[in-house]
């Protein structure tokens, strides 16, 4: 899908330029964009370096564990089908906490662990269980507290207030999460009858 979109953007751009009789803009904008890409990657190194150093500290100090204590009561509510003492619940909580802190590399192993533990509780091995779908709804909709990459881009482009989008991002994310969880609860019953 990404391949198709990329191809359409590039080819339709070239065709339109050709039809409009200004084919030279293709060469010019392509070369300029390639240089901009390199420039952006290089200039975000500063903030990404600072941020990844900080995240390593969060990881090594076990901040994920601290956050997971706050997430637990919500998780118990959202996963009624998982026994409270199940290790699956622990893995889910660790995955979500790591995601919230922006620890992508630490989150994935917890996430895959959670999936295999949920699979043990799943009666139909090729069909997604309720808990799995709720977990992935949370995983894909509730993410990172601090969008470090976006902030670096804004700094690099000379924003007067690069962090001003932190509040709007958190609020928009919260809306998405609430909608995802509500949709899951409604659709769950409808899809149950199908298998």
């Amino acid at each position: 899908m990404v391949n198709i979109i990329w191809l359409i953007l590039l080819l339709s751009g070239i065709i339109v330029a050709g039809l409009n009789g200004n084919i030279e803009v293709v060469t010019e904008s392509a070369f300029k964009a390639a240089q901009t890409g390199v420039q952006i990657s290089l200039e975000i190194i500063g903030i990404m370096t600072l941020w990844l150093g900080l995240l390593k500290l969060a990881e090594k100090s076990g901040l994920v564990g601290l956050l997971s204590k706050l997430v637990r009561p919500i998780a118990v509510l959202l996963f009624p089908s998982i026994p409270k003492d199940s290790p699956a619940l622990g893995s889910i909580i660790m995955n979500l906490s790591a995601n919230i802190l922006g620890l992508g590399n630490a989150a994935t192993p917890f996430g895959l662990k959670a999936m295999s533990q949920l699979q043990e509780l799943n009666p139909h091995k090729t069909v997604a269980s309720d808990a799995m779908i709720t977990f992935l709804a949370l995983n894909t909709s509730c993410i990172t507290l601090i969008p470090a990459m976006v902030i670096s881009l804004r700094v690099q482009e000379g924003s007067a207030n690069p962090v001003e989008i932190v509040g709007t991002t958190i609020l928009a994310t919260a809306c998405g999460t609430v909608c995802a969880v509500s949709a899951d609860i409604i659709l769950r019953k409808k899809y149950r009858s199908r298998f």
Partner: peptide, 16 residues
């Protein structure tokens, strides 16, 4: 970044 920036820049600059 380079791949996507080139595609979208050509798409924009051409008028598409």
């Amino acid at each position: 970044l380079v791949g996507m920036l080139v595609a979208i820049s050509v798409f924009r600059a051409s008028g598409a």
